[in-house]
Simulated assay, not measured.
Amino acid sequence: MSHAYVIGHITVKDPQRWADYRSQVPATLAPWGGELVFRGARLGDLAGRQPHADVVVIRFPDQAALDAWHASPAYQALIPLRTAAADIVLTAYGT
């Protein structure tokens, strides 16, 4: 596996809290080599129905780095803010 990705499907509940959460995430990624690939808003559903309006894709060098980031105290400390700010489904993928 050459890279590991986190894809988040997001419905924002509290824009101010979401902005606060988003501003803090990059610092949690850096120690693990994580980088934001893109953030975007749904333009439309082409097949099926995606209930979340926004998406984020984050790339890591490998699954070990992805897992270490997610388990890190820095990221874990942000989860209560994330939960208050948005409904989100995070899924890990490998290439």
Results as ranks from 00 to 15, higher is better:
residue 1 M to K: 11
residue 3 H to N: 09
residue 3 H to P: 00
residue 4 A to L: 07
residue 5 Y to S: 07
residue 6 V to G: 02
residue 6 V to T: 11
residue 7 I to F: 05
residue 7 I to K: 07
residue 7 I to G: 03
residue 7 I to Q: 12
residue 9 H to A: 10
residue 9 H to D: 12
residue 9 H to Q: 15
residue 10 I to W: 01
residue 11 T to C: 08
residue 12 V to F: 06
residue 12 V to N: 07
residue 12 V to E: 10
residue 14 D to M: 08
residue 14 D to A: 11
residue 15 P to D: 08
residue 18 W to R: 11
residue 18 W to G: 02
residue 20 D to S: 14
residue 21 Y to P: 00
residue 21 Y to N: 03
residue 21 Y to Q: 02
residue 22 R to G: 10
residue 22 R to Y: 05
residue 23 S to C: 06
residue 23 S to W: 06
residue 23 S to N: 13
residue 24 Q to A: 11
residue 25 V to F: 00
residue 25 V to N: 01
residue 26 P to E: 07
residue 26 P to G: 06
residue 28 T to P: 01
residue 29 L to H: 01
residue 29 L to Q: 00
residue 29 L to K: 02
residue 29 L to S: 01
residue 31 P to C: 01
residue 31 P to Y: 07
residue 31 P to S: 02
residue 32 W to M: 01
residue 32 W to R: 02
residue 35 E to A: 07
residue 36 L to Y: 10
residue 36 L to R: 14
residue 37 V to S: 04
residue 37 V to Q: 09
residue 37 V to E: 08
residue 38 F to A: 13
residue 40 G to D: 04
residue 41 A to F: 05
residue 42 R to A: 14
residue 42 R to W: 03
residue 43 L to N: 10
residue 43 L to Y: 08
residue 43 L to E: 12
residue 44 G to K: 12
residue 44 G to C: 06
residue 44 G to W: 03
residue 44 G to S: 09
residue 44 G to Q: 13
residue 45 D to C: 05
residue 45 D to R: 07
residue 45 D to W: 03
residue 46 L to V: 13
residue 46 L to I: 14
residue 46 L to G: 14
residue 47 A to Y: 13
residue 47 A to K: 14
residue 48 G to E: 11
residue 49 R to S: 12
residue 50 Q to A: 11
residue 51 P to N: 07
residue 52 H to V: 05
residue 52 H to D: 14
residue 54 D to F: 15
residue 54 D to R: 15
residue 57 V to F: 00
residue 57 V to R: 02
residue 59 R to V: 01
residue 59 R to K: 15
residue 59 R to G: 04
residue 60 F to A: 05
residue 61 P to N: 09
residue 62 D to T: 12
residue 62 D to C: 11
residue 62 D to Q: 13
residue 62 D to Y: 11
residue 63 Q to D: 12
residue 64 A to M: 13
residue 65 A to Y: 05
residue 66 L to M: 14
residue 66 L to K: 04
residue 68 A to H: 04
residue 68 A to S: 13
residue 68 A to I: 08
residue 69 W to M: 02
residue 69 W to Y: 07
residue 70 H to Y: 15
residue 70 H to V: 08
residue 71 A to M: 05
residue 71 A to S: 10
residue 73 P to A: 08
residue 73 P to H: 02
residue 73 P to Y: 01
residue 73 P to W: 00
residue 73 P to D: 12
residue 74 A to T: 09
residue 77 A to W: 04
residue 77 A to C: 05
residue 77 A to I: 04
residue 78 L to E: 06
residue 79 I to S: 03
residue 80 P to D: 10
residue 80 P to A: 08
residue 81 L to V: 07
residue 81 L to F: 06
residue 82 R to E: 06
residue 83 T to P: 01
residue 84 A to N: 04
residue 85 A to F: 06
residue 86 A to T: 09
residue 87 D to K: 10
residue 87 D to E: 15
residue 88 I to F: 03
residue 89 V to H: 07
residue 89 V to T: 15
residue 91 T to R: 07
residue 92 A to V: 10
residue 92 A to P: 01
residue 93 Y to S: 05
residue 93 Y to D: 06
residue 93 Y to G: 04
residue 95 T to D: 08
residue 95 T to I: 10
